[in-house]
Design a protein around this nucleic acid. Structure first.
Length: 635
RNA sequence: GCUGGCGUAGCUCAGCGGUAGAGCAGCUGAUUUGUAAUCAGCCGGUCGGGGGUUCAAGUCCCUUCGCCAGCUCCA
């Protein structure tokens, strides 16, 4: 046998485990495990001949997998030692930590978390080692059924005959687990239990509900502290909190959950975004349209929404003798405009764009501020084109999308191409050609993407763009979907160059996804301190005393007529207070006018955050802001 | 929808069987103020809604609505 361990080569006449290999190479006690063929493995793993082995030490990011998984086991031990009637289920590693799901009659509380944490420290003081033991299925079933661990029994019963069944022992406690784990618990140096939440056994809401404990662990206290700080920062940036503080929007009980009121401050921002959006879309050859909010149920019958989407639609209402329904999507309306005339190939592509408000029934538990609402406005567009225009059109959509996202400071996103699902309409040829068009467009732009196999909509493949917010959550905003289904259902046609009636393809696309969600993301992205071009007020003028009031009003008038959004504070208050309040409202510029400025006919300018720009004339101030808005100055 | 937690003044929160509280905001007055909180007074709540237990209910119980953390699902 031959093993390649980093730069070293180890030869042996019999197969060795990783632990034995590390021992022979005298790698010392700092090694936690290894990465073999892209997977994290522990000391009990037997690498194949000629394997390349990359040992994992504490400073390696991969160590977190081992640390967190083992921390989850320590948690489970702690919980069972405090509440012995608790049954264990599963405890995997997740992006930022780990969780463990328990079955118990008890409701765990925040106080319990402390209790568990203390117990974990107690267990860790004894410095336990994690020992793997392989057993057969019958033994395993016997052990766990004797213990009353019914969930583990279920797991074992569902295991494939070929799968190895193993226990990991830590002191006098053990768990059914396939690993990998740390060699011993000394590596669990910094951990914290974060929250309790409910979950379901196997994510199935008809099964037992469980108590989930979330925690995180790191290889050193510094990283843990950093992580807790990020959680804290995310809390500060929560758009629901900032939305209230900055008076941007509200969601009111008396109106209904998931329905958003855009306050004047938020509306200023939305209006700017909408105007920019319209301008860019017209430039890019879109035609802006408006459509109603309700339509006859028959339309939704034709479109297939009643068949495929009814659980997301609000109930029908009866008007005269017809049934009507609020729209969950805009597409059928755009289609009807397309169908209003006979179309020629010379017209294609036809691109209809609408800032269209839709209503979707969302289960009450999933509503989440602006991120998840029941009424929201999509920046929707539908491109009607021929099959061979798809690639070009998708190209253009991607260009437009990346341009938009860049404008708002998003340059990092994940891209997914979702392919044919098990239930689909259209021919395999159409699917593969459309999917290839999507891929080609991305390849042309050297954009990296992952394939979401089978994740496409029933009517066609799609590209999804996800941008990441400060919480590290990624949010789907932009989407480009190719659709063969609706043109068929609505019998769309165009007259081709050789005078044939052909069916166009539809491309559904949205860049922001919805104004509500995108606004929520923006609020968190900027932490409420919007850049000057978006800020509800761009400049706040503060008088130092009553004597400057008239002068302040004059400057404000002038700047307003030059298009600057100016707020004034002429109250009889101390300057310190006015500055404090302006800072809290996060206005990008503060202009201070006192005795000196009045005399010199100037304004003292200060940026949000406290940076002094100094005394300048009103026309210079205007120039400075305009330079920033036109992008000539990077602020 | 489900599991758990929580709804007290415009906001943030205290009170957890015995006469509804604080800070901030608001209003009024004094102060004419120079780069993140001037001082004083006043106003403000059927303690989310409904029902019940009790001599007595923010406080205990039931129910309903909403919010929060998750589960599940999505723009």
């Amino acid at each position: 046998m031959k093993y390649y361990v980093d730069s070293k080569i180890l030869e042996s006449d019999k197969p060795l485990s990783l632990g034995e290999i590390f021992n022979k190479l005298e790698l010392g006690s700092n090694v936690l495990g290894a990465e073999v063929e892209g997977e994290v493995k522990d000391f009990y793993f037997n690498p194949a001949d000629e394997s390349k082995i990359y040992p994992i030490f504490l400073d390696n990011e991969k160590s977190l997998t081992l640390i967190r998984h083992s921390a989850a086991h320590i948690l489970a031990q702690a919980v069972q030692s405090i509440y012995p009637d608790t049954k264990v289920t599963i405890g995997p590693v997740i992006d930022d930590g780990f969780y463990y799901d328990f079955y118990t009659d008890r409701n765990f509380t925040e106080d319990d978390l402390k209790l568990f944490e203390n117990k974990m420290h107690e267990i860790l003081e004894k410095n336990v080692s994690f020992e793997k033991e392989v057993i057969n299925k019958n033994e395993a079933l016997k052990i766990f059924s004797n213990m009353g661990e019914t969930f583990k029994e279920e797991i074992i019963n569902d295991l494939d005959e070929s799968q190895e069944i193993s226990l990991y022992k830590q002191g006098d406690w053990f768990d059914l687990c396939r690993g990998p784990h740390l060699p011993n618990s000394t590596f669990i140096k910094s951990f914290k239990l974060l929250s309790v939440a409910g979950s379901y056994w196997r994510g199935d809401e008809t099964r037992e509900s469980l108590q989930r404990i979330y925690g995180t662990a790191f290889s050193n206290p510094k990283d843990l502290k950093k992580h807790l700080k990020i959680i804290d920062e995310a809390k500060k940036r929560d758009h629901r909190k900032l939305g209230k503080e900055l008076d941007l929007f509200s969601i009111n009980d008396e109106i209904g959950p998931g329905l958003v009121l855009w306050h004047p401050n938020g509306s200023v921002i939305r209006n700017i975004i909408e105007n920019y959006w319209r301008e860019k879309h017209i430039e890019s050859g879109y035609q802006i349209i408006y459509t109603p909010h309700i339509a006859k149920a028959n339309l939704w019958e034709t479109s297939g929404h009643l068949e495929f989407y009814s659980e997301n639609m609000f109930s029908q209402m009866e008007i005269d003798t017809n049934k009507y329904q609020t729209k969950p999507m805009n597409c059928p309306f755009h289609i009807m405009i397309y169908k209003n005339g006979l179309r020629s190939y010379k017209e294609l592509p036809i691109k209809y764009a609408e800032i269209g408000t839709v209503y979707r029934y969302e289960r009450s538990g999933v509503l989440h501020g602006l991120f998840r609402a029941r009424g929201f406005t999509q920046d929707d567009a539908h491109i009607f084109c021929s099959l061979d225009q798809i690639e070009q059109e998708v190209n253009d959509v991607i260009d437009l999308t990346t341009e938009f996202l860049k404008k708002f400071g998003f340059s990092e996103y994940e891209i997914f191409v979702s392919t044919k699902p098990s239930k689909y309409v259209g021919s395999d040829d159409e699917w593969s050609s459309a999917t290839n068009s999507l891929k080609k467009s991305l390849d042309n732009k050297s954009l990296k993407y992952s394939i979401d196999e089978g994740g496409g909509a029933f009517y066609g493949p799609k590209i999804d763009l996800k941008i990441k917010d400060v919480l590290g959550r990624s949010w789907q905003c932009s989407t480009v979907q190719v659709d063969f289904n609706l043109p068929k259902r609505f019998d769309l046609e165009y007259i081709s160059s050789n005078n044939q009636r052909l069916q166009p393809v539809m491309i559904h696309r949205a860049i922001f996804g919805s104004f509500e969600r995108f606004f929520g993301i923006l609020i968190e992205h900027y932490g409420g301190a919007f850049p000057t071009w978006l800020a509800p007020y761009q400049l706040k003028l503060l008088s130092v005393s009553d004597e400057q009031v008239e002068y302040v009003n004059d400057i404000a008038d002038n700047l307003r007529s030059a298009g600057i959004r100016v707020d004034i504070d002429n109250r009889n208050e101390k300057l310190g207070l006015k500055i404090r309040e302006s800072e809290i409202s996060k206005v990008p510029y503060i202009g201070i006018v006192g005795k000196n400025e009045l005399e010199n006919e100037t304004i003292s300018l200060r940026k949000y955050g406290g940076k002094q720009i100094g005394e300048l004339k009103s026309n210079k101030l205007l120039e400075l802001i305009n330079d920033e808005l036109s992008g000539r100055v990077d602020s």
